[in-house]
């Protein structure tokens, strides 16, 4: 389940935020997303909506912080907390 979620989120990030020229960029569960500039905090909202729809959860805005979205691992922690 965790492995599947990880792959799904990484896939989404690749398609949504990286360009074709970034194909060789390494992206794993610990890659910094916001602080590295891969995902800017302004565009983060589509990732949040994707997670909410995919997992039928609602992430309050105050929890959708740049810190919480800074790596696939922290995103998974956030999602799992709401999956209960």
């Amino acid at each position: 389940m965790a492995e599947e979620m990880k792959d799904l989120i990484i896939d989404y990030i690749r398609n949504e935020y990286l360009d074709e020229e970034d194909d060789d960029m390494e992206l794993d569960e610990s890659t910094p997303l916001i602080t590295s500039g891969i995902v800017d905090s302004f565009s983060m909202v589509s990732l949040k909506r994707f997670l909410e729809k995919k997992y039928s959860i609602s992430i309050p805005d105050e929890e959708a912080t740049p810190d919480a979205f800074n790596s696939v691992t922290s995103i998974m922690t956030l999602v799992q907390r709401h999956l209960g």
Binding site: Y17, D19, F42, S43, V45, S46
Partner: peptide
Amino acid sequence: MHDTYKHAN
């Protein structure tokens, strides 16, 4: 609501 697209894509 707000959404973004990749630069000039």
